[in-house]
């Protein structure tokens, strides 16, 4: 019998701390598959965020660093500028990248840093207990939008890809959804492209946004969470390649 499906070498063989139905596991798997397929595990440096994925280095088996909330693009800049031969990627959630770290991501893109950014958008703060994220949908109930998010006073969902798209230093921007096998395959292709651009010394920043399920704080079953991405989130966060 031929083995057609195995654990990626770069994904550690251990249980994760993520909730059932969480998208982080899928994203980790896709990243490690890409690293394996590109053969770059020995020269990749990963950056874990503050948020649910803070322990990403317990699962992704490359050199990794854990950094202050939102500062990953600055840390990545320091790494890549001093190590242009390495592949540097940051893995950031919506609180990390779209709230506290907006200055860092905008300026890393603005300076055309040669980085790969994986942006996990699950429309909620997971680690701290389900509070509003900048990407929380209008009407969505969270711990800090108990009546549902209202535009008046709580603002609109922040569209990071569209925001960064106007910067010439961002050379590849795509939004994918971790919400069906077909979507997940597309997400993997996008991640691979983002890594390849860096390997090929493309002059600028690549960002792949992954709409990712959080059944726990969406108060949905894992299958319903997948459907909510497809039916609701994609209305505000349309899937597809913006550039590159």
């Amino acid at each position: 019998m031929q083995k057609v499906f195995t654990r990626p070498k770069t994904l550690k063989d251990c249980p994760t701390h993520y909730c059932p139905g969480c998208g982080h596991g899928i994203a980790h798997r896709l990243i490690t598959e890409v690293i394996d397929e590109l053969g770059v595990s020995g020269k990749t440096i990963g950056i874990a965020p503050v948020g649910c994925a803070v322990l990403a280095y317990d699962y992704i088996d490359v050199d990794m660093i854990e950094v202050a909330h939102g500062r990953a693009p600055a840390v990545a800049t320091g790494m890549k500028r001093t190590n242009p031969d390495k592949i540097v990627f940051s893995y950031q959630g919506d609180g990390d990248l779209a709230a506290i770290g907006t200055a860092e991501i905008i300026h890393a893109a603005h300076r055309a840093e040669q980085l790969t950014v994986v942006f996990i958008n699950n429309a909620v703060f997971g680690m701290t207990g389900g509070q509003m994220a900048p990407t929380t949908m209008l009407g969505q109930i969270t711990a800090t939008t108990q009546q549902g998010r209202q535009a008046d006073g709580q603002g609109y969902p922040l569209q990071v890809c569209e925001l960064l798209n106007i910067l010439p230093g961002a050379i590849y921007i795509e939004r994918c959804g971790l919400c069906s096998p077909a979507h997940i395959r597309k997400a993997k292709a996008a991640l691979k492209h983002a890594f390849e651009l860096q390997m090929n010394n493309a002059k600028g920043l690549s960002l792949v946004e992954l709409l990712s399920p959080c059944p726990t704080y969406w108060r949905l079953s894992p299958p319903d969470a997948m459907l909510w991405i497809q039916n609701e989130m994609t209305k505000v966060f349309p899937l597809g390649k913006l550039k590159g």
């Binding site: 950094v67 790494m79 200055a103």
Partner: peptide, 13 residues
Amino acid sequence: LAAVNMVFGASAT
């Protein structure tokens, strides 16, 4: 804030 974190990144390597 970014400067000290760039230092953080470079130092870590």
